[in-house]
Nucleic acid binder design. Structure first.
Lengths: 397, 397
DNA sequence: GGGGGTAGAGTGAGCGTTAACATGTCGGGG
DNA sequence: CCCCGACATGTTAACGCTCACTCTACCCCC
């Protein structure tokens, strides 16, 4: 297949895949120095990425000056700086991170520790953090753990440490994960996302309580006497906080506080909770700890012949993309994952710039907002069950 | 707040966060060598991670022998090997990846290039790849790009190259991304996921055509005369392949091929396509290119007073977690992302072990499977519209 | 006009590892 | 008995960079 006959390169036989080998090589990021093709006989390719020495030679300075330019040291004449920059450009020079990491003991890499899960919230946060970190000019190293227990996390952190990360971002939404944080060396810059609100140092979270209060109050405002709650797993901070917020809102309104229906985050658990709820005529308003639960609940309700929001009002949490497109469109609480990621990285960068440990950096919880759609209505069990879909109605208020 | 008075460590003032500083340090992965506490006066902490030299000294061998043990070189006496291993253990030695990368020019890191998106498919693949790569003992570097165009990808690859990755996995589901692949140096081990099926070298994909055929045939088998298709964006391979598979199934069955309704992957686009579909009485069966489109379509249908599956049958693609919990539960095609990731990493590792470029490694497309739920039924517009939910019925066949 | 500060540059020594080569030590065959 | 190859180990030199110095002008000021 590789039909072109070219000057054979001994160390690199032609590959079938390569359609236009030389162009490919040219574009490769690390340019080929001293190609000087045509010098018959002599080795045509001196394949080796250019180093500081090469740049220095071309610019007529010492390698140290090149280093200074690279690191924006002040004591370099503008003219020299330009000359070096030009030489870099010409050679397609790229600094060798490994060498730098070796000597400084720290790389321009940020490590992220996260559970490997399909859960919408954590995944959204993860990708947001990736995005923000690389936007900030850092390389991204990910260490995902199968479960968020102490040893897995310690292990992940160790792996990251091996990579000589400059700092880490840990997504630690459960208590066991948070405990593992005690084990990380305290001189390693770190930002914790979704950790224990009781330990606010270096922590960034969504204001879960506020979100839960918003959701609960929305239901109360629609005229419901009280609001039931289907919670997430008890060892999740998000879960506990949402319970707290929900209860608070109820207490504030002088409403009765029904027992919590504990579940995990899954659709299936929501479905089961929904089956329970369906048998309790007094349960007319439900705040589900996340949208998946809400969807599961709604399915169970539907199967039991109950309709949402006429018979039962439901509010979720997360605002998954599907939320506006299910039937009925789900009223829910939308956390700002992007902002969380942004704050976390900011927190980390602050520690990087200023290694002084004085004063634990803290940031305020990020307030979520309520997205009102059509899964909330005033109580009115007496009203006839309606047909599906067609009619539109705005959310109760 | 830091109430304990300890021998002060000049280079590391106590931090408020640290509750039990010394334990934390102990657990830190990189143990502290030569602590020898008590040697009054002399510096108590020689904080520096142990290197090969330290291990070598303790084991009474040269650093090179340590290196040999580390890399499982054959010519080391068993006894020596054990002694070195013990020394490593005792010192808590961890090899310095940066140094190794510097000298070998290649790190034990796999880079992943992926678009930073909320799309279910690509995201699932990404996390699956992360998982598999780190399970294989490699560090994971992620370079996410905002858009999948040529320069962004070239840039991402360059960033990864800077990290001296051993190889890369690229998730390149659109044509522009695939073109960018020409620019990567052909001696860099690579695996492409979801790329151009027309260029099968080093490519791993889901068998999109098969999936589409499965979906279409399922609808046909339910008794529908033909099947409409709402497609994804035209520049996505997934999209094009699914169109092909759908058309093929129709042609095979001798059915009429209706025009394609082009959309993107979003719920919103599905909704719009659904509004179109709702006005066409002859459209009784729809294959949506993904589940989000299907959800959007179903919402539009519902709003138009049509019910699924009585009036219109719908099949999706992806099997998002919500698929079984919407109303009606969605029949859909489930790709095996885990298998895709597994194959991709296998492909990459093969290239790592055997740098010989001979013979492009290829792997067969991974067959997806149809998950039948309740959004498909035989045509029967004549039947009265039914109420919501309650009744159960198995999918048509 | 000479001392000293300072901007701008250079020199050399590592950082921790691997690769290439050198050394030493056996055992066996000629 | 000696030489040679195999095995086991040690020695030395990079790898590409930063850090801590040194060096040279040059200018300011007394």
């Amino acid at each position: 297949m590789s039909g072109q006959s070219q000057p054979s390169r001994p160390e690199e036989p032609a590959r079938e895949l390569a359609r236009e080998p030389d162009r490919a090589a040219q574009h490769a990021g690390r340019a080929l120095p001293a190609v000087t093709e045509g010098e018959a006989g002599a080795r045509v390719l001196t394949r080796r990425a250019p180093g500081m020495a090469d740049v220095a030679q071309l610019a007529g300075v010492s390698h140290q000056t090149v280093s200074r330019v690279l690191n924006d040291h002040p004591n370099v004449r503008e003219q020299t700086r330009l000359r070096v920059r030009a030489a870099m450009e010409q050679l397609g020079y790229r600094p060798n991170r490994a060498a730098r990491a070796l000597v400084t003991g720290r790389s321009q890499t940020v490590g992220i520790v996260a559970q490997n899960t399909a859960l919408y919230g954590p995944t959204s946060v993860l990708t947001a953090v990736e995005r923000v970190v690389s936007r900030a000019g850092f390389a991204v190293g990910v260490a995902s753990v199968p479960v968020l227990d102490r040893i897995s996390i310690a292990d992940a952190v160790a792996r990251l440490l091996d990579q000589h990360v400059a700092g880490i971002v840990v997504i630690a939404p459960v208590v066991s994960a948070n405990e593992a944080l005690d084990d990380v060396p305290d001189d390693l810059p770190m930002a914790v996302i979704d950790g224990d609100p009781g330990r606010p140092a270096r922590l960034v979270t969504v204001d879960q309580q506020l979100g839960a209060r918003l959701a609960t109050r929305c239901l109360l405002a629609a005229g419901h006497e009280t609001v039931w709650h289907v919670s997430g797993p008890p060892d999740w901070f998000d879960s506990a906080e949402r319970v707290l917020g929900w209860r608070q809102a109820l207490v504030d309104a002088g409403a009765e506080v029904p027992p919590v229906l504990a579940a995990d985050w899954s659709l299936g658990a929501g479905f089961e909770a929904g089956q329970l709820l369906a048998r309790m005529p007094e349960a007319r308003a439900v705040f589900a700890a996340n949208d998946h639960l809400a969807l599961g609940i709604m399915k169970a309700l539907r199967q039991a012949g109950l309709s949402v929001p006429e018979d039962v009002s439901v509010v979720g949490f997360d605002d998954i993309p599907e939320a506006g497109y299910v039937s009925p469109p789900l009223t829910t609480v939308r956390p700002d994952f992007e902002a969380v990621a942004e704050q976390a990285v900011r927190l980390l960068l602050a520690q990087l710039d200023d290694p002084s440990p004085g004063g634990l950096p803290r940031v305020a919880p990020i307030p979520p907002r309520l997205v009102e759609r059509e899964s909330v209505a005033p109580p009115g069990r007496a009203a006839p069950r309606r047909r599906t879909g067609v009619a539109r109605r705005s959310a109760g208020r």
